[in-house]
Nucleic acid binder design. Structure first.
Length: 573
RNA sequence: CGGAGUGUAGCGCAGUCUGGUAGCGCACCUGGUUUGGGACCAGGGGGUCGAAGGUUCGAGUCCUUUCACUCCGACCA
């Protein structure tokens, strides 16, 4: 491709809303173009090329793993979503609209319903299973706040795959195969990543793992252990039960006047007791289908923090929001003095597992200005669940080493779904005995357009992008420094033809611009290797450039083609 | 949804307080010079000033309504 014919509108100026490196460089480098803000982007030729390269890697590995590519309709009938029960649960992220006949549709944010529908119509027998179908298609989620360019757009490209099995064991086998396949994909793309335990969120299911591309700008906090392989999203992370070194308090069982003492810090000082021996009670309003709500008290040790996603899952709610003081007063609760013991009627209570059998505890009295000391929680029959947000320094549940936080970009997520969708949607097969059974499912996603951003977050410098070998829009860039110098131009043309004939993905910068301008564009666009043909050609020398580190080597012009062939094949970046 | 802002040329912005010829930089077009680190000179094209209504002889500017977008937070495969 000749650069002079390529639509690459690079800019010197940074768009004012861009803060992340990937967002800045993808826009400035002319890869993508914002569609009047609001999380929509056009892909220009360079961006499309990168997208295709990434798609190719994804497709190649999936096909090798035995998956089959399909393409489902982007517009999906609302009736399918009503069948699965997600029409309401998915909330406002689902873009709903009607056609001219007043039929309701949604733009697919993910395609479980559509894929199950496809399979239930065409698969009837155990002989046709297992099956793993995927597509690489647009998705639309009406995000509350799209931002960071391709990182969190509203319309985005996703690879979504779905597998169907006769048994749980076979689904788990496929799940493991997909984990391995995903690792190969991320490795080929040159990414540093970590596979972590995750919360299943709106997709549902029993077990899920996320593929986190490590980057400080990542939106997810992940908990990792440096001593073993354990890693988890903060939303799902577990730890060893936290020991307490402070001595056990020996307070009588009584009601103590504690005016205006409501924070954990103040209480700990007032009683001279470690926060470990307090019951922290957090009130939330849980939201359910059809606008139903319920006030829930989540109780945990004063030394722990509540993890909201875990809390939400514990009460099977669609969402949790903070309860206002008025709402609390309505059910007879007082902020600062709440307790899971003697909670008012109609209020649901969930205790953290770390409170099982707790004794000598101090908690609120459910009465303004009073706390209770010397309380036991051991003989309660209240619900228990893991509600704790793992802190840095907590001990790994697997090996006991301290855990630490790091940041990641969620680029892939795989789920063991079970029969969560196949049952309500009636996706069944006949087994060997002619008996009808629901299919066991797994689902697997990769944020393909988000990967572009992730690659740049991990591979850039102050000058621009540094694409990895398998993601680069071109493998080689050839620049003629002064286009008016016929010797330089002829040499460039010849090398360009040679490279093309050798099957190298090459872009030839034959623009009339000066050296500096072309060099800035090269650095911004970030093609892994370049050949620069300049003044030294008169002495039989040209330059071979490696974008990573901007290493420049002066080499014999006669040998340049061999060097190019050798370097492009061998280098891993 | 709470808080704070911004809408003026493709992009980045000034002009709004104090109403009176619609401006600057980048980009673009023409001609010339220039060619190893985002060149220079000269000339040129491009605007329903987010939208609607109002006040006024006259509105980018004042008033009312409205829409959109951005940032912080909340939220979020």
């Amino acid at each position: 491709m000749r650069f002079s014919r390529l639509l690459v509108p690079t800019t010197k100026e940074t768009p004012n809303d861009a803060t992340l490196a990937s967002h800045i460089f993808l826009i400035r480098g002319g890869f993508i173009q914002s569609v009047s803000g609001s999380g929509l982007y056009n892909f220009l030729p360079l961006g499309k090329r990168v997208l295709d390269k990434v798609k190719h890697v994804v497709k190649d590995e999936l096909d090798k793993a035995g998956c089959q590519e399909v393409s489902l309709s982007f517009v999906t009938p609302a009736s399918l979503w009503e069948e699965s029960g997600r029409y309401e649960k998915y909330g406002k992220e689902l873009l709903r609209f009607k056609d001219r006949k007043d039929n309701e549709f949604v733009l697919g944010p993910t395609h479980e319903e559509m894929m199950v529908n496809l399979v239930r119509q065409s698969v009837k027998s155990y002989k046709q299973l297992p099956l793993n179908l995927y597509q690489i298609n647009l998705k639309f989620r009406d995000e509350i706040r799209p931002r960071f360019g391709l990182m969190r757009g509203r319309e985005f490209l996703m690879k979504d795959g779905y597998s169907f099995h006769t048994t749980e064991e076979d689904m788990k086998r496929e799940f493991a195969l997909m984990e391995e396949t995903y690792k190969k994909i991320f490795t080929r793309l040159g990414l540093e990543f970590r596979v972590v335990e995750a919360d299943s969120g709106a997709i549902g299911g029993s077990g899920s793992k996320e593929f986190m591309v490590l980057a400080d700008s990542g939106e997810d906090t992940i908990v990792v252990c440096d001593a073993c392989e354990y890693g988890a999203n903060i939303e799902a992370a577990v730890r060893q039960e936290k020991p307490c070194e402070a001595s056990v308090p020996t307070l009588a069982q009584e009601k103590v006047h504690t005016p205006d003492i409501t924070t954990m810090e103040a209480l700990s000082a007032f009683f001279n007791v470690d926060p470990y021996y307090f019951v922290k009670t957090v009130a939330m309003k849980a939201l359910y289908d059809e606008g139903k709500t319920q006030i829930v008290l989540f109780a945990l040790r004063g030394s722990d923090e509540l993890q909201e996603v875990k809390a939400c899952n514990a009460v099977d709610a669609n969402d949790l929001v903070e309860a206002t003081e008025e709402e609390l007063a309505e059910v007879g609760l007082v902020a600062g003095y709440m307790s899971p013991l003697n909670a008012p009627e109609g209020v649901r209570v969930v205790l953290d597992e770390n409170l099982k059998g707790a004794v000598e505890m101090i908690c609120g009295a459910n009465e303004e200005g009073y706390h209770l000391t010397g309380q036991k929680l051991e003989d309660t029959d209240m619900d228990h669940a893991d509600l704790v947000a793992v802190q840095e320094g907590d001990l790994c549940a697997c090996c006991g080493a301290p855990l630490r936080y790091t940041k990641g970009i969620e680029a892939g997520h795989i789920f063991q779904l079970g029969t969560q969708y196949s049952e309500p949607l009636g996706a069944t097969f006949l087994d060997e005995n002619g008996k009808s059974q629901p299919m066991v499912m797994g689902t697997y996603g990769i944020g393909v357009s988000r990967l572009l951003a992730a690659i740049i977050e991990q591979n850039h410098d102050e000058k621009g992008c540094i694409w990895t070998k398998e993601s680069a829009p071109f493998a080689l860039y050839i620049m003629v420094s002064n286009i008016k110098d016929d010797t330089q131009l002829d040499f460039g043309e010849k090398l360009y033809t040679q490279a093309q004939e050798a099957g190298i993905d090459v872009v030839f910068d034959d623009r009339k611009d000066r050296f500096g301008a072309k060099m800035k564009d090269y650095e911004l666009i970030g093609i892994p290797h370049a050949v620069i043909i300049g003044k030294k050609l008169a002495e039989g020398k040209v330059e071979f450039v490696t974008r990573k580190g901007m290493e420049k080597e002066e080499v014999d012009a006669d040998a340049i083609f061999d060097i190019v062939k050798e370097r492009l094949c061998s280098s891993s970046s």
